[in-house]
Design a protein around this nucleic acid. Sequence first.
DNA 1: GTTGAGCGTT
Length: 84
Amino acid sequence: MSTNIYVGNLAFSTDSAGLKAAFAPFGDVKDAQVIADRDTGRSRGFGFVEMTSDEEARKAIAELDGSTIDGRQIKVNIAKERSR
DNA sequence: GTTGAGCGTT
């Protein structure tokens, strides 16, 4: 099992690697992805991070929500279910 | 070569 995290208000210059780099210090990041427009390939300004440890995920959220990455104050929360 | 609310493609 793992914890899925929503990250919003990302700078358009932030990519999946940048996202992972931000969360990695707080625990094991299973996967990180910035959602890009499927047609243009450009960032949509938000993404998701999946962490293997639920407690580390919560700590990362607490530490990173409202923090600044690439000049933008990001929004971090537990993600909703993808199949909506 | 731009922009700014948002919960995603497989």
